[in-house]
């Protein structure tokens, strides 16, 4: 938003119109980086205000997705006529569901990050992208306590350990970058259409079903034909969640397509989401 030039002794701010809507990128991202502490503090105080720092608050973060996993586990058992797939299936389910909860949590809190920013947006000049990014940070710190539960289930299910599992961190990275992009995208949409956040629960429910969470990637080999081939390409979470579960649970090296599609989706979503956000950012002050 502001072009910052350092004078000999002074800070000089020059505000000029940017025609295409996108502000000069290098100073923008420099500003973003210098104020990262703000995003951290914004997210921290949000977490404090939501009482997630209490014991039961923390417990709920783990319990909520775990209970959800159990519900789906029994659903699968019913649909399959008693064959639930045992603990390995449950571990598979929770691994995917926890990461999915991170992404959908980033989506819902990202969507309301700007419209909920109120006075801060009206009165302060700072790179607004900090708001959706702070929302992703919040979702991330809600995701972390679920990791030990996943590890425990991994142990119980008797799955082995291998060095390849460490590579699953790459897919976590994909998920974070993807989440930042989609949070920025939805934050922008929410400013113009305040009912965006009302559509989100339906949208993410469908997304959950078409992603390899309730079913595993290796289950579907040879099934659903073209439909699954299309899903593989157009559904970002097919690669991101699929790769994460395959690696972290089974230590199976995902196919090159999964690696590439995950990376492509993460980058595309980040670039599209943040550019859209930046190009509309100037409008936010008058639309709130």
């Amino acid at each position: 938003m502001a072009r910052l030039a350092t004078d000999t002794a002074d800070e000089v701010h020059v505000y000029e119109p940017h025609r295409a809507g996108i502000p000069p990128l290098v100073p923008y991202f420099r500003g973003l980086w210098t104020r990262r502490e703000f995003a951290a503090e914004f997210s921290k105080s949000g977490i404090r205000a939501a009482n997630t720092q209490t014991v039961f608050g923390q417990l709920w973060l783990v319990l909520n997705p775990l209970l959800l996993a159990l519900v789906y586990y029994f659903l699968i058992a019913v649909l399959r006529g008693g064959d639930s797939g045992g603990l390995p299936r449950l571990a598979n389910l929770t691994g995917g569901l926890f990461l999915f909860t991170f992404v959908s949590g980033s989506m819902s809190s990202g969507a309301s990050s700007v419209t909920g920013g109120g006075r801060l947006i009206m009165n302060m000049n700072f790179p607004r992208l900090l708001m959706p990014f702070a929302a992703v940070r919040t979702a991330w710190f809600r995701f972390l306590p679920t990791l030990p539960v996943y590890v425990l289930l991994h142990l119980l299910s008797g799955a082995g350990w291998s060095w390849t599992m460490l590579l699953s961190v790459v897919f976590l990275g994909y998920a974070v970058i993807f989440a930042m992009g989609i949070a920025a995208l939805l934050a922008t949409l929410q400013v113009y259409f305040r009912d965006t956040s009302s559509f989100l629960p339906y949208f993410s429910r469908i997304w959950l079903y078409v992603s390899p969470i309730l079913w595993a990637v290796h289950d579907t080999a040879g099934q659903f034909g073209t439909l699954m081939a299309v899903n593989r390409i157009v559904n970002p979470l097919y690669s991101i969640v699929g790769g994460w579960v395959e690696l972290s649970l089974n230590g199976v090296m995902p196919s090159p397509t999964t690696w590439v599609m995950g990376a492509v989706w993460a980058v595309v979503m980040f670039v599209v989401g943040s550019l859209l956000f930046m190009s509309r950012e100037r409008d936010f002050t008058v639309r709130l």
Binding site: M1, A2, D10, V12, H13, Y15, P17, N123, M124
Partner: peptide, 21 residues
Amino acid sequence: AGVLPPSSGRVEVRGRISALL
């Protein structure tokens, strides 16, 4: 304060701004 960039023209400010808007 730089919250609303101009549609045309130019604003130059030398120094740190504190806004009580």
